[in-house]
Design a protein around this nucleic acid. Sequence first.
DNA 1: GATGAATGAGTATTCATTCAT
DNA 2: CATGAATGAATACTCATTCAT
Lengths: 213, 213, 213, 213
Amino acid sequence: MSPRTTEQFEEMREERKARIMNVALEHFAKEGYHKTTISHIARHAGMSKGLMYNYFTSKESLLFEIIMRSVNEMYADFDRNKDGYLSEDEFEFFIRRLFSMMKEKISFWRLIFQLLMQNEVREKLQRMFPSSTVFMEQGSIIPDQAFLNSIVITLTDYFVRKKGNEKPGYDPIRELNLFILMLKGFALSYVFMDDNDEEYHEKTITDIISKYK
Amino acid sequence: MSPRTTEQFEEMREERKARIMNVALEHFAKEGYHKTTISHIARHAGMSKGLMYNYFTSKESLLFEIIMRSVNEMYADFDRNKDGYLSEDEFEFFIRRLFSMMKEKISFWRLIFQLLMQNEVREKLQRMFPSSTVFMEQGSIIPDQAFLNSIVITLTDYFVRKKGNEKPGYDPIRELNLFILMLKGFALSYVFMDDNDEEYHEKTITDIISKYK
Amino acid sequence: MSPRTTEQFEEMREERKARIMNVALEHFAKEGYHKTTISHIARHAGMSKGLMYNYFTSKESLLFEIIMRSVNEMYADFDRNKDGYLSEDEFEFFIRRLFSMMKEKISFWRLIFQLLMQNEVREKLQRMFPSSTVFMEQGSIIPDQAFLNSIVITLTDYFVRKKGNEKPGYDPIRELNLFILMLKGFALSYVFMDDNDEEYHEKTITDIISKYK
Amino acid sequence: MSPRTTEQFEEMREERKARIMNVALEHFAKEGYHKTTISHIARHAGMSKGLMYNYFTSKESLLFEIIMRSVNEMYADFDRNKDGYLSEDEFEFFIRRLFSMMKEKISFWRLIFQLLMQNEVREKLQRMFPSSTVFMEQGSIIPDQAFLNSIVITLTDYFVRKKGNEKPGYDPIRELNLFILMLKGFALSYVFMDDNDEEYHEKTITDIISKYK
DNA sequence: GATGAATGAGTATTCATTCAT
DNA sequence: CATGAATGAATACTCATTCAT
């Protein structure tokens, strides 16, 4: 009876939703959520404003769907290696993977950093991902406590093995803390840097790795 | 019409400007620039919208005057110690000073972080402070190349002395780079953290210092 | 393409039109014409918006077809007893019939009351049913002058017989006028009352009848 | 300090608010609440849309302020004669007063009838005036249970005196019920009638009165 | 100087209607 | 015939800025 099958429609819808979300993400990241208008997004996505509301019930829901999508992708990506033991090479891989992911999704991270810097939004996000409070305070969103814990535990384990017996009275947990701060500082620089500093960043990653490997 | 009266007027003006800027800064930092309305600022500053336009020609100019003021204060504050040599105690003092300043002006830093994350604003700021491009990319604004250089040079000198001959083939400049990333990561956590993590922050500062002192 | 098939098609069409009109009438009556959306009607009628436009050229034409249909049904219903003479029992039957019809078509009456209260709509309806101006002003729509007259004449006749010689100087026409106002007041209460006042209404109808029988 | 005194401002505000409310009431009554746009009201009140929001926080709040105002005026008006006893002349005065008030505020009543005919609005109004549920069902809004009761009691008393001993087994309460239906029917006709039926209405009021006086 | 009333362009959102498939 | 994607004009509402007083 249908001129197009349900699947065809569904496919088209998904494709379009994805296009809208991509365009919106770019603009949110570039101009900020509030400055970006629905009209602007619609125009750049090549459609009318009205149609956008066929796919997203509001500007806010568009924002949250974007976040959910990216979070889920990230989660799926990281989920592979979960055996909890990090060799030195795996450590290096882990760090490099972290930043290659960031590079791939740089707009998302730009957006997330922006959002986390506004009280109201931060509170809303914390309600969305209540389990990840700890990391949120450190500028990350991660959807699942178990996943989060596994990373921290894995890294702690690595630091204890690596640094634990270096000097007596030395606390590897606190060293991990500083290490995470460094990653975070690098992430901040990285996310808001001009594109052409590739080389500097590569060198810096190598430095970070060689410091803790 | 005596000079005395003029002075008084001038004083009142400055006082009022300061009040407006303080109120505006708080709200910009808390709610974001776009979400904060002129009406809201005026009401909280205890005056009419019309009068505000007597002091600031636009919302944007208010924003930029706030930035300029904070930058200048920061500059004035740091300008004292410029002899270029850092003892270990001076190094500790320098770091502690850095974060006590951040604590005092936490709203300003919150705002700055927010602003720097929007392309258009970042570009505008870079036009205002063209010399400080390098540090801007790293999330800071500093108004004067010479000043900036002096800090970097001073720190470089400190790192060379401190770490330069630790191991052969070791590059203290790159160590400095990592150190700055760590500071930046800490700044980010610090600025957007809940108030009640004082103790954690104190401990972390001490850790950072003891690592490089 | 056989005539049989054409008939079947025609039947389906009519069935579907009826379904649309029923659903639309319910929603118009409950939410008001403006608040009811075409999408909503289509969804509740189990079809697409596009298909609805195959049956009705516009939302407004849907409204007017609903009115026409109900008016015609009403007409058909009342058309039976036209011999112009009302016995007392027939009078009772007439009144009870009036309100049982109202009960059956309560949504329609709700809608009609709503519509008649808006100038523009009232004018449009008056253009559609120019002959019935008099009754329209009294909150009813009746499609045909002859029909209308026949009712009024029949009732007048009844009132003259019943009340005409009660007192000297008494005007049964004016008594009829008050009687009609009472019916109208009852209709208004009835149409917009909660469902659970059945008993009250029954008693009131009995009161009205016993007053004039 | 002020260029205008607070009182001057307040006066201007009240004047303007009144103008807006009057214009809005007319349009709501004529076109219906939903069809009437804010732009339309603003244009007819001779001001910008924006200014309207300086006086009313939303279209809905405008509607409710209009209702409240009219209800209060009505209440104040009726509040005079509260001694609970109605002579025949006072009864006549009461009825005539009822309809002269309706005539003065015909737009308001037109609006009220419209509003009461939509489920959602009726429920909202019932929440606003919960005490007057009984009369609401009969198409009126009256703000205070005591006031309402006093009217019903006064009329009941009148009917008992007047009609109570006419026939044995006769119930004056039920007669009152029919009387109220008649008033309501008349109100409905009156409110939605063309202006030029003055004479007919006068005669009808006289008929109603002479029937129960 | 000081007020807040007034404006108007702009913003998210809705919805009757059209149309490609 | 049947679908629902697509449009665009309209709607309520906001807010930086101006201006009469």
